Structure formats: structure tokens, C-alpha cells
Simulated scan of single mutants.
Amino acid sequence: MSAPPVDAIEKKEQPVESQEAKAQPTEKSARVAVVQQATSTYGDSSDEENEDGEEGQPEIEDEQILEDLPDDTQEIELIHSKLFAISKLGLSRFTQLKKLCLRQNYISVLDPEALGPLTELEDLDLYDNRIKHVGTALDTLTKLHTLDLSFNNLKHVPHSLPKLTTLRTVYFVQNRISRIENLSGLGRTLRSLELGGNKIRKIEGLEELVNLEEVWLGKNKISKLEGLHTLKKLKILSIQSNRITKLEGLEELESLEEIYISHNGIKKIEGLEKNLNLRTIDVGNNDITELENVSHLSNLEELWMSYNKIETLQALEPQLKHISTLETIYLEGNPVQAKEGPHYRRKIILALPQLKQLDATYVKQI
């Protein structure tokens, strides 16, 4: 079993490919590497040409980076390429482009003339740049499915977003956004919304997003669970590291399968009576004193309750023993662990014989 996600800004998570994994820099200059890749794909390259990227060789100009790529190229990746702008790349000729990745550069302005002709674009990745606003640069990208503007300097959700009526997944992780807005018009297509690591204080502006399946709001300043009642198809709610003190407002989320709400100030497990499809509950690092109100969750597979204030194992059997699907439970860091001492692990396994994992280790048969 893997540990629960700490959130979108440290995962990418979870339902999607890791942001960190995608962001690894190339060993050679990416400017040279991309040209070498294009050459080897569309023609032969000699050993001498493959040495062009070694230290000491002059870097190519922006205008030259993509010059060897054919006009019908469908994917372009320029990661860690020291780009300050996109206006000189000649992107406008790639009218069949479907994926454009410009991660880990220094781009601060998006040029509408450069991006405007890319009307077939489905995936635009601008993770880790210096973008403060997008203006009208995205207005024509009406076939865009995935947009990643994480780790930039955005203060607002882009106003042009409603024009992108095919969007399914958007990432605005680790920006300076203080309000959830400008999402109206995306209700038909949007499935995943990531706004972790911002300055959001209130859950709002989600009412029309009735097809959302994942919401990631970790590491904000949210103090109350609210504004979620229309999200009937929501499967994953991640709202870790906020200021929430009560589990509430989840009654309408009958499709909910995973909730991650660790590192808050929750004192009691409650309000889950209608969430019968829950498979994973992460309430670690809160102020919970008792295991309760989960006995009805017959599909539960993983329960994470580390570092709370639980002092007894008495509730384990009545709350969990009958749940045959339960495979993993975390209780380490609670007062009961020190209280039970060497008997802690054995007592839990005897109470819950269906377990496959207790805390960080697999369960061995007693």
C-alpha cells in the first residue's frame, strides 16, 4: 500500500502523472537536445552531431530550436530550456500540434499571435514559469483538454477559461489565487480541478461544475466545508492543510470515494452518513479523540488516523471488524500507541483480522 497523497502540489498526483517526475531537467542543454531529437526522428544523425550539446558549445537561438521539425508535428517538448518568451519559436506554423510542453522556463508573457493558430492543441503545459496573467492568448484553443499553469504567479483564475469549452483537467497549483472564480461554462466537460497551494479562504464558484470528479484544494486557508452540494459526481476531495474544524457539508456527495482532510483541526468523525461509497478516509494529524461513525461504510478500504488524540482501541471491533473490504489502517502517533506499548500491534491485528497493512508495514499472520 502507498501512503496517502499529501496533496496536488506534492503529488500529481495521484490521479495524474507526478509533476515532479515530469519536471526533471535534461542532462544536456534542452535547446540542443530537442534539435538532436528532431534530427534522429526525421533523419540520421552522426556521433559528431550528438556531441553538440556538450558543455562549452554555443547555445542555439530561439528561432533555431524548432526549425528542423516538420509543420505537421503533433508534440513539442521544451523543458528547462531557458526560454523567456515564446514569440520567436515559430509555433504558429504547427497548426496540427496537439501537445505543447514548456515546463521550467522563465516565460512571463503568453503571446496570442504565437498560440492563437494552435487551434488543434489538446494539452498545454506551462508548469513552473513566471506567468502573471494569460490575457487573450488561450482564447482560440477551443479543443484544449488539459491546462497546467501550476507554479506561476497568477493572482486570478484566467478570465478566458469559460471559452475553453472542452477542458477536462486544469492545474493552478502553487500560485497566488485568492478566489475560486471564472469557471462558469465548464460544467459540461471539467472533471478535475487543482487549486492547491494558493490563498483561497472559501469554497465557492463550483456550483455549475456538476461533472467534477476530483477537487484538490490542499494548502489553502479554507475554514469551512461548503459550496460542494451540487457536485453529485465527485469522487475525490482533497482539502488537506487548511483550517477546517468540522466534517460537514458532504451530505449530497453520494459518489464520494476518497476524502483527504489531514492536517486540519477536526475534532470528530461525523457527517458521513450518506457517503456510502467511501473507500479511503484520511483524517490524520487532526484533533480526533475517538473512532466513531464509520461502521456503516461497508466499502471502506483504507482509514488513516495517525497523529490524533485516540487513547483506546476499544472502538476498533464494533466500528470496523465487520467491514471485510478494510485492508489498511494507520493509528501510529496516537496516545494509544504509547499506552499499549508492545501490545499495540498485536491487539489491532486480533481485533481486525482482515487487515493487510497496519501503519507503515504489512500485517503478518499471528
Rank of each mutant, 00 (worst) to 15 (best):
K267D: 05
I269N: 01
I269R: 01
I269T: 03
I269Q: 01
E270G: 06
G271F: 03
L272A: 02
E273F: 01
K274C: 06
K274N: 15
N275R: 01
N275E: 02
L276M: 02
N277A: 03
N277S: 10
N277R: 14
L278Q: 01
L278S: 05
R279G: 02
R279H: 10
R279M: 10
T280D: 04
T280Q: 05
I281F: 04
I281Y: 02
V283T: 13
V283E: 05
G284D: 08
N285E: 11
D287S: 13
I288H: 07
T289I: 12
T289N: 08
L291F: 09
L291Q: 07
E292H: 12
E292I: 06
N293R: 13
V294Y: 03
S295Y: 06
H296R: 12
L297T: 09
N299D: 11
L300V: 10
L300P: 05
E301M: 09
E301F: 00
E301G: 00
E301Q: 13
E302G: 01
E302T: 10
E302D: 11
E302S: 12
E302V: 11
L303C: 08
M305Y: 10
M305T: 13
S306W: 12
S306K: 13
Y307N: 15
Y307T: 13
K309Y: 10
I310N: 00
I310C: 04
E311H: 12
T312F: 05
L313W: 01
Q314W: 07
Q314L: 09
A315F: 07
A315D: 13
A315L: 07
A315R: 14
L316V: 02
E317P: 06
E317G: 00
E317A: 15
E317D: 11
P318D: 05
Q319H: 05
Q319S: 01
L320E: 00
L320Q: 05
K321N: 10
K321E: 14
H322P: 05
I323Q: 01
S324T: 13
S324L: 12
L326K: 04
E327W: 00
E327D: 09
T328R: 12
I329C: 02
I329H: 04
Y330E: 08
Y330R: 12
L331P: 06
N334W: 11
P335F: 09
V336Q: 08
Q337S: 11
A338V: 12
K339E: 11
K339M: 11
E340V: 07
E340Y: 15
E340H: 14
G341A: 13
P342L: 08
P342K: 12
Y344D: 07
Y344V: 09
R346I: 11
K347T: 10
K347A: 13
